[in-house]
């Protein structure tokens, strides 16, 4: 599914040059579940942005099913994001003035899905994450865990091939964290998604079949055969 070759990302912070990613080589197979860990500023989110086509590498290639995302136009990248990739953010990133159902519908707007169909699929997606009774609620009327469930429904309503989650449990308490982690794992297993998650939480990392640790822009991948779920294909160090 994904193949990253020599991916480098450099930033300028004032006069200083920052190497967020320093020549990453990484393979992620279809249906893989990979957790990315590492210290703050280690390049985790930058790597996730590369996988999601939200940012372009300074050097190197990011292949998704054989297409190099680094060489695509902004329009093509937008089209790929809208169709194939679902995002879940730490702060949920829901639109505060829209209801849960309307928030989920926003993911279907760029696909040109008609309004009635959007509403139906959004309701279905919310049902699947246990929020069938909260369709008309605004984000402010929902708990943190419920908001994250809405965000997950939004990410999955378009039936993507890839789910990218950036610290999805970072703003949640322990009980809710476990509920969300269980939900994500269940959906990954059920739908055959390729699931990449950035987290600081070691307990979540231990549940993943593959763990990528990023330090100073370099990645080390370790296998965890004891983890539940689909066995991961072999990765390689970058």
């Amino acid at each position: 599914m994904y193949e990253l070759i020599g991916v480098t990302k450099q930033y300028r912070r004032g006069q200083e040059r920052v190497d967020a990613l320093a020549g990453i080589d990484l393979k992620i197979a279809q249906g893989d579940r990979l957790v990315i860990q590492g210290p703050t500023g280690g390049g985790k989110s930058t790597l996730l942005q590369m996988l999601g086509g939200l940012d372009r590498p300074t050097a190197g290639s990011v292949f998704l099913d054989g297409t190099d995302l680094a060489g695509l136009s902004e329009g093509r990248l937008t089209a790929i994001r809208s169709r194939y990739i679902g995002f879940v953010f730490q702060s949920f990133n829901l639109i505060p003035t829209l209801t849960a159902q309307e928030n989920v519908e926003t993911a279907l707007v760029p696909l040109g899905v008609k309004a009635a169909e959007r509403r139906r699929r959004a309701a279905e997606a919310l049902e699947s994450v246990g929020l069938g009774e909260r369709l008309g609620h605004l984000p402010s009327e929902l708990s943190g865990g419920q908001q994250q469930r809405v965000a997950i429904a939004r990410a999955l309503v378009k039936r993507p091939q890839v789910l990218l989650a950036d610290e999805p449990t970072g703003n949640l308490d322990e009980t809710t964290r476990d509920e969300i982690a269980d939900l994500l794992e269940g959906l990954w297993r059920e739908r055959g998604l390729t699931f990449v998650m950035v987290t600081h939480d070691s307990s979540l990392a231990r549940r993943a079949p593959r763990l990528a640790t990023l330090r100073k822009g370099r990645v080390t991948v370790t296998e965890n055969p004891k983890a539940a779920g689909t066995p991961a294909p072999a990765g390689k160090e970058g």
């Binding site: 089209a79 994001r81 809208s82």
Partner: peptide, 16 residues
């Protein structure tokens, strides 16, 4: 900014 960024991440075109 986060709202618009999120919409773009979801696949909304800049024009939209």
């Amino acid at each position: 900014v986060r709202e618009f960024g999120t919409l773009k991440a979801l696949g909304w075109k800049s024009g939209r």
